[in-house]
Structure formats: C-alpha cells, structure tokens
C-alpha cells in the first residue's frame, strides 16, 4: 500500500522535474535564465510589463514585424479598457472593401481587426529589409528554444565588433545568441529607445524584459486561464484519486 503511494508521488515529482524546460540555444550556448513572473505553476503576467511591452511593439518592432494572429480586441486580456483599445486600434490603418463602387479603401482599424502589418506581403518586407524577412512575432516565444529567455538574450546580445577572426556579411550584425551569430536585424533597442507612459526608466534591459513579456502573452494568451484551471483540476484529481484509493482498499480488503 505504502509502495503505491510512494510510486504515485514519484510519478508526480518526475513530471515536475521534466517540466523545467531546456534552455540551451543554438550551438549549445547557455542562455542566461531570467525570473519571469509567468513561469511556474502559479505564474501570471506582470500587467504593467505587458502594457509597456505593447508600447515597445507599436513604437519599435511594428515598423518591420507583423503580429498577425492578434486582434486589437485581444488587448482586453492585458487590462486595456474598451475605449483604450478603440484608441489604440484607430492609430493603425487597414485596407477594407470592396465598397459599393467596388473600390478597396483604407480606414482606421477597429477592435475586431487583426493587428495591421507593416508590409502588404513578404516580398515587400524583404525589399525594405535588405533581402531578409522579419518574421511575424505572434508565436515567437513559443517558436524558439528557450522562449522568453532566448528573446531577452537575443535583444541584449548584440556586440558592436565581432570577435577576432569572425567575418560578418554585408549589412549583418553580430549577436551572441543568434544561430550562426549573424543577424540581419540591427540592434533594435537601446537605453531610452522608448519613453514609457508610466514613468518606468527605459533601460535596454527593461525594454527587452517588457517586450519579451508582451510576446510571451501573444504566444500563449491562454496561459493565466490555463494555469488557474489546471490548479483546480489537479486538486480535484488528487482528492478524487485519494478517495478512489480508499474505496479500492475497502473493496479488496477481504481478499487478502
């Protein structure tokens, strides 16, 4: 009997250790692990950081990177009111139509629209970026080993001069954490690259943290709801399983 309980606990402990994901980036370079508020079983996003991250996206990243999977209405999920969302959406232009005359027309975005993309298509994006395609950022944190750690490391991992003996391609930049170390994206952030509305000091590190938090949310908008429900489900299952075990013992009692 004790053995079974022990085995149960062991299985649970094992699943906990497994859950600590790998944090090795390309070529085995260790990523500096950071403390994110959204990791762990009870993790939630830091609202302030998320909202600042949106500002960073809109003022910095959005000039090259799309965020196609996100709609403006989704911003309610990081604490914006309906009016704020309307105002944020209205800053962007989207193409709609055809109208009654059969013409396409531009209009300010509405909350139901997806985030407006900086380029009409991939070829246009390449043409303005020296042949490189700035990837869509919606799923970026989920689509890279190391997730938010990787993103933060990448954004702060630029070196002005490559190490001796390393030849950089034309228009490329050296980055410690990027696979192959040559990245087309110029260092996108620096101290005071944005002026935060809430008065937070905009160091490069702070900006990287905020945008990584924001993009962690765009990749997993269900994260908070998922963990909240998960705690309830696990508690329920643990109590239920304990009761099932008691009933099982009771029923089997007269056999041994």
């Amino acid at each position: 009997m004790r053995k079974t309980i022990k085995a149960t606990l062991l299985v649970m402990a094992m699943s906990l250790t497994f859950a600590a994901g790998p944090v090795i980036a390309a070529e085995g370079i260790k990523l500096p692990a950071r403390n994110w508020s959204f990791t762990g079983m009870f993790g939630t996003f830091d609202r302030g950081s998320q909202q600042r991250g949106l500002q960073v996206y809109l003022e910095v990243c959005a000039s090259c990177h799309s965020l196609r999977l996100l709609a403006y209405r989704n911003l309610a999920g990081i604490g914006f009111s309906e009016d704020q969302i309307k105002a944020i959406a209205a800053e962007a232009e989207v193409t709609d139509g055809p109208n009654e005359e059969g013409e396409m027309f531009d209009r300010p975005a509405r909350p139901s629209d997806r985030f407006a993309s900086p380029f009409p298509n991939d070829n246009a994006a390449r043409a303005s970026n020296n042949g490189a395609l700035p990837p869509d950022l919606s799923l970026m944190v989920k689509a890279r080993k190391g997730g938010a750690d990787y993103l933060h490391a990448l954004l702060t991992g630029y070196k002005e001069e490559p190490p001796a003996g390393f030849t950089l391609g034309d228009g490329m930049n050296y980055n410690t954490y990027f696979a192959g170390h040559q990245i087309a994206m110029a260092p996108p952030i620096a101290d005071d690259a944005v002026e935060y509305a809430d008065g937070t000091k905009a160091t490069a590190k702070q900006i990287a943290t905020d945008i990584s938090t924001f993009l962690a949310w765009t990749a997993e908008p269900e994260l908070e709801e998922r963990k909240r429900l998960g705690i309830k489900v696990l508690l329920f299952l643990i109590v239920l399983t304990a009761m099932l075990y008691a009933v099982k013992r009771q029923i089997w009692k007269d056999l041994h």
Binding site: T8, V11, M12, S15, L16, F18, A19, G21, M41, R226, K227, L229, G230, I231, V233, L234, L237, I238, T241
Partner: peptide
Amino acid sequence: MIFFMFFVFFAP
C-alpha cells in the same frame, strides 16, 4: 490523469 493533466495544464 494527474500525470496527464499536469502536462496539459503546466507543460503543454
């Protein structure tokens, strides 16, 4: 189910 749901909710 405890094992399974742990992955679903916390390490999907």
